[in-house]
């Protein structure tokens, strides 16, 4: 027994969940547990109350609407990986998810858990940034929706009040460009990535019509390279263009840690941006 004592609550509806959040001081929401459970076991987190979301059935599931793919916060990563409507539109999801932990952790780990934990190197927040995802948040004042760009407030700190819960995310279909690729570099498969890049490209003939690039693991939260994207528009989809994009991408502000310097992360970002754009463009051609 390693966790400090807490009281366990298992609501079955969002309504009940809201009641508990309003009532209980120093509470933590338990989603898939692949980040919170280690923190409890190591006593980094010592909540008085743990509110388990696994019994709230309405929070899990994937729905396709006219203009978006809606993913419930408690959708497990393994289920999203296998979900046809989501991956038809955003094949980048499955490509990124195979690199999220290991199959055993994806069996429990959830989409919402990953977004709320907001590890800088996490793949799902990076995909959410690349696809301009919208996040639905429920609290005592009702529901609000915010853009992924407004979700990270600081290092591992989402824009979420203590009495609020993430309900789900919406990936707008219009952001799904024809060619998509997710690449990351980690010391070992399933480890935290030193850097990861999500890239999407659409082509008009051999000219780049639009591009989206998001980088994980380099800044304190996923970073969109909007200037690099803008510079790609109207350029020919060739090696010289992607090399130029890579050079520009290396200018990204990068964190240093005990293992990896910021300089190395910048170089790696350049390499991954070039590779991801090349792959995404090739896939856009295949799709044409």
């Amino acid at each position: 027994m390693k966790s400090a004592p807490f009281a366990y609550h298992d609501p079955t509806t969002v309504h009940e969940l809201m009641g508990l959040l309003a009532d209980k001081e120093n509470a933590k929401l338990l989603a898939g547990g692949q980040s919170l459970m280690p923190m409890l076991n190591m006593r980094y987190a010592m909540p008085d109350h743990v509110i388990d979301l696994n019994g709230v059935a309405s929070l899990a599931g994937i729905v396709e609407t006219d203009d978006a793919i809606e993913i419930g916060a408690m959708t497990r990563q393994c289920d999203l990986m296998a979900a046809a409507p989501a991956n038809d539109r955003f094949p980048i999801l499955a490509e990124a998810l195979t690199q999220v932990g290991h199959f055993q952790t994806r069996n429990r780990g959830t989409v919402g858990g990953s977004l709320c934990h907001l590890d800088p190197s996490a793949e799902l927040p990076c995909i959410a940034a690349a696809t301009d995802a919208r996040l639905a948040i429920r609290g005592p004042r009702g529901e609000r929706e915010i853009a992924m760009a407004d979700w990270p407030l600081a290092y591992m700190t989402p824009n979420l009040e203590a009495d609020e819960a993430l309900i789900g995310i919406r990936l707008p279909k219009r952001t799904a460009l024809a060619g998509q690729a997710f690449l990351e570099f980690a010391r070992r498969h399933g480890d935290f990535a030193i850097a990861g890049v999500a890239a999407m490209v659409s082509l008009e003939g051999e000219t780049i019509e639009g591009a989206s690039i998001a980088v994980a693991g380099v800044g304190s939260h996923p970073i969109r390279l909007r200037e690099v994207e803008a510079a790609l528009e109207g350029e020919p989809a060739n090696e010289a263009t992607f090399k130029a994009a890579a050079r520009e991408a290396r200018g990204i502000e990068a964190m240093s840690d005990a293992y990896v310097s910021g300089k190395y992360r910048q170089r790696l970002t350049g390499v991954l941006v070039e590779r991801a754009l090349t792959k995404a463009a090739a896939r856009a051609r295949e799709a044409a």
Binding site: Y8, L30, G33, Q34, M37, P38, N41, V50, D52, C78, G101, H102, F103, Q104, T105, N107, R108
Partner: peptide, 21 residues
Amino acid sequence: GVCGACTVLVDGRAVRSCLML
């Protein structure tokens, strides 16, 4: 959640039993 030694099957799915209550 790092070593995998604690893996068990819960309803047929392999999961880390140290990361589940």
